[in-house]
Write a protein that binds this DNA or RNA. Structure first.
Lengths: 367, 367
DNA sequence: ATGAAAGCGCTAACAT
DNA sequence: ATGTTAGCGCTTTCAT
């Protein structure tokens, strides 16, 4: 701990160093210079040896590697990046990780990133545009190689501008201000299929509980509902169309209000997995017999859904596939940029949802 | 794209640059030097202005900031780190993000990291020690400030050694080779409480389905079961103690095998949420009436569990609290290290689980 | 096969 | 209040 100030012109502040003196035996980080000194060679030789350069003798490589282990040397990725301008960092920006949708994506992306030698920086926005901006700034500052983002409803202009300098792919949702391709699941089709199925069974008064149209997903699913109702010539009572926050609570409240309304629907279609969860909770509380009293089609298919009695029919989403598609697009984009190619235009992709029938739908009782 | 080789002694490889020429208007990253040149001042003035240094005139600060925006300047965090040795990166190493347990932790940690100005690097090991090592190496190379880790069952010596040079906190599980404090939930007590509760109701033949003892959690919960059975003087039939992988499939299979056995148990206690999920699935398939035919106590409390009919009693875990505790410990550890303090000894912490009764337990039918 | 030296972008002494 | 200079750890010419 006691150390005389050195008179030499070093500008190293005379503070911390963990324990002991200069020897990088343990504690402070050893550098290639330390190895070079220990071996009496130049630090460039050390660098070359560690990078398995062709013109370094096997013996030297061996000595260097041994010394590196000895000194506990670990390359400083930051310093390397400064030279090579390439830092193997990918940002994943999602609203929430409790949501089935985003967890599955996260899992797939993490696996792919690891495989491709990237670190995954997880950013959770809670759908707050300010938080989103902060994350994008950090990512940009650390020169992240790319970003996969589920944009918040109201992306700030600054956020979009920062992104314009980076390789980006949007997933699940897409925002017009972000000039990046998007991978999404066709929400129009998802809800349309559900409505069609119910209509086929004879339902005419169908309720919808979805999220607000400020998210691209909410908008699409809402359109899926209204347009299909119209196309099939079914009455479109505004009271039957409920759009709110995508929370379990809202799903519960909206469901309760629908089934207690003057003329309740004979079927309800949900617009997200959380809303479905809230809906199921409400139906159980209100003792609604599904599908006898009410037919139900959920959205999304978390693994527990099949444990519910009765089985809930639902809109299945190809989550893993969309994540795979997104990361492939991103990696291609990155590669193009690294090779100086002018980033081929990537068109957005929309995957098809599919209906999973589990018995929560049946023809309406009366009519 | 066409660009003549420049004769000057610059060692810049004559490749990429996106589009156009040197001006950092857009595309390539502007540096403080670019700003300095544009303004005809020195780059250190620019640096100081951007960092709001005291001795820079307000007018200069203003000009610099304006130019920075103009040129799309974003500080290079890597370069800064090289000087300041402090890179605001925290690694989170978990086996899986599909698991309720780890998602909740991830959410809490992400929030705290954001708040404290750290980026969160998410590393998923799939309980593979090699993968874990790779992640730790990357983290160490990028000089991550700290790590929160759910260690794999068989941590490699190299992994443990790398960690010894970093600020680390273990969470959920703990591994003896890792010299870092751990925050966990008392698994012995969790299962013991469940068994005690069932014994109080009069059960004597109780089955246990948990994970193998190679994870610290599995070991503790197993001990919680056997020791409590012994303490209460209940018969401990080896056939009633099932330990395997923590998968839904195993939970299903083990449950099916238990209820089909010669002398089936009158109650089953589970050791993880996934096993509980598999168990419920099996019980539904086999048409076992819970709690009439069989009492059940689950482990963990994912939000959907209360939707199951009948309500499943379960061991509640203070997941968010344990994550909070872990991140606080880590931040304190980091601060101590940064201030050169010798890292006060942090003792491990064990939180108490609590029983949530929902009606899946009742006195045994016969006796 | 190895060494010397430059420089990536930034901050911080140390001058003025 | 601003400029000059050194140096963080590394890779990479350019010499030898």
């Amino acid at each position: 701990m006691v150390r005389a100030m050195q008179g030499r012109g070093n500008n190293k502040p005379a503070v911390k160093e963990g324990t002991g003196d200069r020897r990088p035996i343990h504690g402070a980080n050893a550098t290639i210079k330390d190895i070079a000194v220990a071996l009496g060679v130049s630090h460039s030789t050390v660098s070359r040896a560690l990078n398995d350069h062709r013109h370094i003798s096997d013996e030297m490589k061996d000595r260097v590697r041994r010394a590196a282990v000895e000194l506990g040397y670990v390359v400083n990725a930051g310093a390397r990046t400064l030279r090579q301008a390439n830092n193997r960092l990918i940002g994943l920006i999602v609203p929430d990780v409790m949501n089935q949708l985003f967890v599955v994506m996260t899992k797939v992306l993490a696996a792919r990133c690891e495989q491709a030698g990237y670190q995954l920086v997880l950013c959770i926005t809670r759908d707050d545009a300010e938080v989103e901006l902060k994350h994008v700034q950090s990512l940009r500052q650390s020169r992240a190689t790319g970003i996969i983002v589920v944009p918040t409803p109201y992306v700030l202009p600054e956020t979009a501008q920062l992104m314009s300098a980076m390789s980006v792919v949007q997933i699940s949702r897409s925002h017009p201000a972000i000039a990046a391709p998007a991978v999404a699941i066709d929400g129009v089709r998802g809800v349309a299929n559900a409505v069609q199925h119910l209509a086929d069974l004879g339902h005419r008064r169908i309720g919808y509980i979805g999220i607000t149209s400020d998210r691209s997903t909410g908008r699409a699913r809402g359109i899926g509902f209204t347009s299909t109702m119209e196309r099939l010539g079914l009455p479109l009572d505004p009271a039957m169309v409920n759009q709110g926050p995508g929370t379990i609570e809202y799903g519960r409240a909206a469901t309760t209000s629908l089934i207690r309304s003057e003329v309740p629907p004979t079927a309800i279609v949900y617009g997200t997995a959380d809303l479905t969860e809230g809906g199921i909770e409400s139906l159980q509380r209100e003792n609604i017999a599904v599908p006898r009293d009410l037919s139900v089609v959920g959205f999304g298919d978390p693994s527990w859904l099949k444990l519910i009695t009765p089985g809930i029919s639902t809109v299945g989403l190809a989550l893993a596939e969309s994540a795979e598609a997104a990361i492939s697009m991103l990696l291609r984009q990155i590669q193009a940029r690294e090779e100086g190619r002018p980033a081929e235009h990537q068109s957005s992709l929309e995957l098809e949802p599919y209906l999973i029938l589990r018995g929560s739908t049946t023809p309406p009782r009366v009519r």
